[in-house]
């Protein structure tokens, strides 16, 4: 049949556009993505999870679970402003991709830093805020578009901060203690690089 080779040739597979991944992430963000397992709550409802959520008792658990999750978000992040985008994740690759997609900024976070644990990021009109834990303390890396937002870097009156300019942006690392500050450098630098920079 002559038509078969014509179709095979004309309907061949093509490469997906380069920006498909970023656009998928952004679309996920539009549907309130906060971590992989809750990427699209609306879609969860019509899938298998829906089947497992039987009965009023289960429904009540879900509602209270959502309330608790919202409280955790508010406690950890504060109340986000209306236009802020927030992601909660411990993956350096995910946060890096997400920040790149939503703020157009490539922050070279290291995926294998055992001393610093990423917890999430926020993109607002002021810039980007990457949150992490150093030991038992919170720490933040703030990347602002202008110097007026430097003061937001301090976690509290006793915190330690360090700021530097790079690529027309101001980077501020804010930690609870000076020692945390040294450790938090591992967010983006290997331990050998850190020693060279701080010595």
């Amino acid at each position: 049949m002559w038509i078969e080779p014509v179709l095979a040739r004309k309907l061949h597979r093509v490469a997906a556009p380069e920006d498909l991944w970023n656009r998928t992430l952004m679309r996920g963000a539009d549907t309130r993505v906060c971590g992989l397992e809750t990427l699209s709550p609306a879609e969860h409802r019509d899938e298998s999870r829906c089947r497992s959520l039987r009965g009023r008792a289960t429904g009540a658990v879900v509602v209270w679970g959502m309330v608790a999750a919202m409280l955790v978000v508010v406690l950890v992040w504060g109340v986000p402003s209306r236009r802020d985008l927030v992601i909660s994740s411990a993956s350096a690759i995910q946060i890096r991709d997400w920040v790149k997609a939503n703020a157009g900024l490539d922050v070279p976070l290291l995926a294998d830093s055992s001393n610093v644990r990423l917890t999430g990021a926020r993109v607002s009109h002021d810039g980007v805020e990457i949150a992490c834990r150093v030991g038992r303390h919170d720490a933040k890396l703030l990347i602002s578009k202008n110097k007026s937002s430097v003061q937001h870097a301090a976690l509290n009156a006793n915190s330690s901060t360090i700021s530097w300019g790079m690529n027309n942006r101001l980077y501020t690392l804010a930690c609870a203690t000076p020692e945390d500050l040294r450790i938090a450098c591992l967010l983006c630098h290997s331990s050998s690089e850190r020693r060279m920079a701080l010595n």
Partner: peptide
């Protein structure tokens, strides 16, 4: 993406379908 493009015949529609597919995959992988 190829299935979406060959079915819809439109690149923008194919992008939409591919994004929806991966979001659906993600939300229903459980």
């Amino acid at each position: 993406y190829s299935i979406a493009l060959r079915y819809s015949g439109d690149e923008a529609a194919a992008m939409d379908i591919a994004q929806e597919t991966f979001l659906k995959l993600l939300s229903s992988i459980q």
